[in-house]
């Protein structure tokens, strides 16, 4: 296995993370300050990545946008883990039971809708905004984690150490938390990384169609949408937000792959 992938993945994700963190305290320019007279400047020494159609510094907007993208994806994955894992554990604890059936069919139901459709539904009801985008992306993460957890937990339930715990008189809830969950952690971390990159893409997609964060909050997807008609005049306005999305998603995917190689017990024989 090449060492380049993991290294590159870590590097890209670190760069994005650090950029987002820096933007909390400092950006080269104020992203809410418009300067129409300075619009569509090509990249130069002052504006490293140029300015957009309102004369805002694109680098500053990308930095703040990174924060938003990461925050949305992070909370959305958090919702997925927080709801999906307990549901999966619950279902696996009594396979074939009514609870199991109910949880899994509910999952199928949510799973059957494409993520973006759920997102559009939610934003149509509650109005567009970053919070609703988070909820929408979070909801479609739930079945992913619930299924993963249930599937892996089912096989763990047949293992000897779980048998031992049962013989020792532990209840299903305790076994799930004390024995099953720790053995799922690696799997969940890998999945979370992958879902994280999907979350970034979903957030970009939602704000591209105008259902994500609302102006003046900069977001990568909306930057892309707004620069669409400007591509032939000032390509840099569209290229840099596009690159930011590509770099982040690529980094997370590389990182996710290498984490899987390392952590996923199902792949351990390949090492």
């Amino acid at each position: 296995m090449s060492r380049l992938g993991p290294a590159l993945g870590t590097l890209l994700v670190t760069v994005v993370l650090v950029t987002a963190l820096i933007s909390l305290v400092w950006t080269p320019f104020d992203v809410e300050q418009l300067n129409i007279g300075n619009k569509l400047q090509s990249p130069d020494a002052t504006h490293w990545l140029g300015t957009d159609h309102f004369g805002r510094d694109i680098l500053s907007m990308l930095m703040v946008g990174a924060r938003l993208s990461l925050a949305v994806a992070m909370v959305a994955v958090g919702i997925g883990v927080g709801l999906g894992v307990p549901l999966g554990l619950l279902a696996a604890a009594s396979p074939g039971s009514l609870v199991d059936e109910f949880v899994m069919r509910l999952n199928d139901l949510v799973f059957a809708f494409p993520a973006l459709v759920i997102a559009i539904l939610i934003t149509a009801i509650h109005g567009p905004g970053a919070i609703n985008a988070i909820i929408a992306i979070g909801i479609f993460n739930v079945p992913v984690f619930a299924r993963l957890t249930r599937g892996a937990a089912l096989s763990l339930w047949t293992r000897e150490f779980v048998m031992a715990a049962r013989v020792a008189g532990k209840g299903a809830a305790r076994i799930s938390v004390e024995h099953i969950l720790p053995n799922l952690a690696n799997l969940l971390i890998v999945q979370a990384t992958i879902q994280f990159s999907l979350g970034i893409l979903a957030e970009a997609g939602l704000s591209y169609v105008g259902l994500g964060a609302q102006p003046p909050l900069p977001s990568w997807g909306r930057m892309l949408a707004e620069s669409q008609t400007l591509i032939s005049i000032s390509p840099h306005v569209a290229v840099f937000p596009g690159l930011a999305i590509v770099v982040t998603v690529l980094g997370l995917n590389l990182l996710g792959d290498s984490l899987r190689d390392r952590l996923d017990p199902r792949l351990s024989h390949e090492r």
């Binding site: 809410e32 300050q33 418009l34 129409i36 159609h53 309102f54 109005g127 567009p128 105008g210 609302q214 102006p215 003046p216």
Partner: peptide, 22 residues
Amino acid sequence: RRGGEIIASQLREVGINTDIEN
């Protein structure tokens, strides 16, 4: 859409905040 963002920024300068909804 564009005019709204510009106006929001101009209003902010005099202390009026806006909630933009597209």
